[in-house]
Amino acid sequence: MNEQSRDENGIVLTEAQKRARRSRSIAIALALAALVVLFYVITLVKGPGMLVRPF
């Protein structure tokens, strides 16, 4: 029988589902960190030009 169950505590994940969720969470965290670094570096490179917008 599958180890996942649904009771008054809600859905309990299987080990496979936990592994998959951890893998996705790490990927999202790394992507967000990369985005922060990217915006920081490009702001340094462009300086005040970062604020120039055509509209």
Binding site: Q4, S5, R6, D7, I11, L13, T14, Q17, A20
Partner: peptide, 20 residues
């Protein structure tokens, strides 16, 4: 390997969509 819900599930719960 997916969900195997043992308890009673309300029809409105939308379990198929919410399956992890």
């Amino acid at each position: 390997e997916g969900a195997d819900y043992r308890g009673p599930i309300p029809a409105s719960a939308g379990v198929a969509q919410a399956e992890p």
